[in-house]
Amino acid sequence: MTPIVMGLRRGWIEIRHTLTNSVDLWSYLFPAILLLATVAFMRNSTVPGTSFSLGSRTLPGVFGMGIAMGGLMTTSQQLIMDREDGTLLRAKAVPSGMASYLTGKVVLVGGMTLIGFLIQLIPGLFLVDGLSVDVGGWLTLLWLLPVAFVATLPLGAAVGSLFDDPRNMALVTLPIFGAIAISGIFYPITGFPGWLQGLGQVFPMYWLGLGMRSVFLPDSLAAVEIGHSWRHLETFGVLAGWAVLGLVLAPILLRRMAARESGSAVEARRERALSRVGR
């Protein structure tokens, strides 16, 4: 248990550090400001076929999108950056260092994602009307958040283990943004062509958005969803499927990544980074 305890401490220290660093604080605030401004701009529009504010309908989906992006993008970014600066090599050189490192990253990314969620949630409740959480909503949130993290964090680690250059992050971010665009976060997915609806439902972003909407929106809004239902069973099943895939792939890819790490590999990446700066 010692590596796990060390990882928990490491993650907590890194979370506290993000709260004292201006750059990290801005990384919390800027996305929240941007997304809340988008929701505010949409609040005078209505969901097609209803009198309900489109902004109010969009905000819970934004919460789900934030959790997905935290698990997928933040985790992969952390791994790529830590490979380049040698952090992973140092962790590999310490007994049980990789277990401690990965535990710390889970704590860090999970904590950062929850902080970002609260930063969006608290002002968002005052920004739009119509959001409420009943007992059933709280119970849904209790199972949805853990499943969301398990469905996205291992996938983010698996993706991050495939790249060793921060310049390749576009290969990660662009597909994620594409999946968000077709996942019904900012506009009901039922307004898309049938084939695009099917494609959007493949990715966890859609199901996280749907789950969050079921928590915060009245049941009458389920009428604009596919099947006119919140589909909790399907949400759990699809997210669990992504969780299994991530938990299978992540250990394999992370072991391969750790095996390839060496002093010469880190030095080569450092030389490439210095050559880019010198140009």
Rank of each mutant, 00 (worst) to 15 (best):
M1H: 06
M1N: 03
V5H: 02
M6C: 00
M6V: 05
W12V: 11
E14I: 06
R16W: 13
H17W: 10
L19Q: 04
T20H: 14
V23L: 11
D24E: 11
L25G: 09
I33L: 15
L35G: 01
L36E: 02
L36C: 07
A37C: 12
N44D: 15
S45Y: 13
S45M: 13
P48V: 07
F52R: 06
S56W: 07
R57H: 14
T58L: 02
G61C: 06
V62C: 01
I67V: 13
A68I: 01
G71S: 03
L72H: 06
M73Y: 15
M73C: 04
T74P: 00
T75I: 07
S76G: 05
S76T: 05
Q77M: 11
L79I: 15
R83P: 02
D85M: 08
G86R: 04
L89F: 00
R90I: 02
A93S: 15
V94C: 00
P95E: 00
S96E: 09
M98S: 01
S100T: 07
L102G: 06
L102F: 15
G110V: 06
M112C: 06
L114Q: 02
I115F: 05
F117M: 09
L118G: 07
I122H: 01
F126T: 00
F126I: 02
L127V: 01
L127Q: 06
L127K: 03
V128N: 01
V128K: 01
D129S: 12
D129Y: 04
D134I: 11
G136I: 07
G136S: 11
L139G: 00
L142Q: 03
L144R: 06
L145C: 02
A148H: 00
A148Q: 01
A148R: 01
A148E: 03
F149T: 03
F149D: 04
A151W: 00
T152I: 01
V159S: 05
L162F: 10
F163Y: 14
D164R: 15
D165C: 12
M169H: 14
A170I: 15
A170Y: 12
V172L: 09
V172R: 04
L174A: 15
I176E: 05
G178V: 03
S183C: 07
Y187W: 12
P188A: 11
I189R: 09
T190W: 00
T190A: 13
G191S: 07
F192Q: 13
W195T: 08
L196Q: 10
L196W: 09
Q197Y: 14
G198Y: 10
G198Q: 12
L199D: 00
G200L: 10
G200P: 11
V202W: 10
P204A: 05
G209S: 14
L210W: 04
L221A: 06
A223S: 14
I226W: 05
G227M: 03
H228K: 12
S229F: 04
W230G: 01
R231S: 13
R231Q: 13
R231D: 10
E234I: 03
A240D: 04
G241K: 08
W242K: 01
W242L: 10
A243F: 12
A243L: 10
V244A: 15
A250E: 09
R255H: 09
R256Y: 07
R256H: 12
A258H: 11
A258I: 15
A259F: 12
A259C: 07
R260H: 15
G263R: 10
A265R: 14
E267F: 15
E267L: 15
A268D: 11
R270P: 00
R270K: 12
R272N: 12
L274S: 14
S275T: 04
S275M: 10
